[in-house]
């Protein structure tokens, strides 16, 4: 009985709550981006209105698409994003499936929505979508290396891949001064991977709106578009929660709901710094510039961070 409770009801509850929270965060992100651009901006509930409007539109399925991939890719994208919320601890609440999956699984789960979008783009049977999908593939090939080095570094000092354990042993306290610089560099690396993971400007070449007419999503309408929109919002919230759980798990020491609000505030600050500010300040990069950016400077910085942590460990011992 307890496993049924854990496997069926708790995931459904957390998924619905996570959906609502992610859409609110997306609305806050749009409003703050508008304020940065000296505009007023849409109201905070605008993403809910977008989804409700998409419920009234009809869903057109293009005739030369691969039907089963085209229809199932949005569902897989949304379910992949929702599963992420079940493995990441949120403030005082432990992850419901936290004992059944570790950091490596979470990093692989982050690739599922992107891969589903790539599959959906290739299956759309439209040359614009093919271009968008190949750009997303190249981008994924580029930013996965820094993320892997991040996982290796955080798990190395804590000797376990379990996110709950990494959160409780605060990673800043396990290293000396050289290692602190290394972990700071890793934080910079993961904050620069965030816009590419979430396909936001300056790394939104796959979904370039005016350049390739909407990129990956060009032939999607109505229901499938709404599912991709939701999966994008949930992935932003999940990635920011992961950064907070790994790097800033500090607790305030108040009531449970106070702790949760403190966690949401930290997630909001991480999202504003890594996604919103960069989004309004930069222009879109070309895909070979993106691949060069992640393979040359960012990979070197994360290698340097790993080397600093290694030197720190050797010196201490």
């Amino acid at each position: 009985m307890e496993t049924i409770m854990q496997i069926v009801f708790v995931p459904i509850g957390i998924a619905s709550l996570g959906l609502i929270l992610s859409l609110i965060f997306k609305g806050i992100d749009r409003r703050i981006a508008a304020r940065f651009q000296a505009r007023v901006g849409p109201p905070l509930v605008q993403p809910f209105r977008d989804i409700m409007k998409l419920m009234l539109k009809e869903t057109i399925v293009p005739e030369n698409c691969v039907r089963w991939v085209y229809e199932s890719a949005p569902i897989i994208a949304l379910v992949g994003s929702l599963m992420l919320l079940l493995y990441i601890p949120m403030g005082p609440f432990n992850a419901p499936l936290g004992n059944f999956g570790d950091l490596i699984l979470v990093l692989y789960l982050f690739t599922i929505p992107s891969l589903a979008m790539v599959a959906g783009g290739f299956a759309s049977g439209n040359p614009y979508a093919t271009i968008g999908a190949q750009r997303e593939m190249v981008m994924m090939m580029s930013y996965e290396l820094p993320l892997a080095m991040l996982a290796a570094a955080t798990a190395w000092k804590v000797t376990s891949f379990s996110i709950a354990k990494i959160s409780s042993t605060v990673i800043w306290s396990t290293v000396g001064p050289l290692g602190l610089v290394g972990i700071l560099l890793l934080l910079v690396v993961v904050l620069s991977v965030a816009p590419a993971e979430l396909v936001k400007i300056p790394f939104d070449a796959p979904e370039a709106e005016t350049e390739i007419a909407g990129g990956l999503l060009v032939d999607y309408s109505g229901r499938n578009l709404a599912l991709f929109y939701l999966s994008d919002a949930v992935k932003s919230f999940a990635f920011a929660s992961l950064i907070v759980a790994l790097f800033f798990p500090f607790k305030l020491g108040t009531t449970i709901w106070g702790e949760f609000l403190w966690f949401l505030l930290k997630v909001l600050i991480v999202m504003i710094v890594s996604v919103t500010t960069v989004r309004v300040a930069a222009a879109r990069l070309q895909i070979d510039n993106i691949a060069g950016y992640y393979w040359k400077p960012i990979a070197l910085v994360s290698l340097a961070a790993l080397a600093l942590i290694a030197i720190d460990t050797a010196v201490v011992i």
Binding site: A34, G41, P42, R49, E209, A213, G214, V218, D219
Partner: peptide, 11 residues
Amino acid sequence: RFGIKLVGSPR
């Protein structure tokens, strides 16, 4: 601020 957004595809 009225929710009007420019999109790239007529779909």
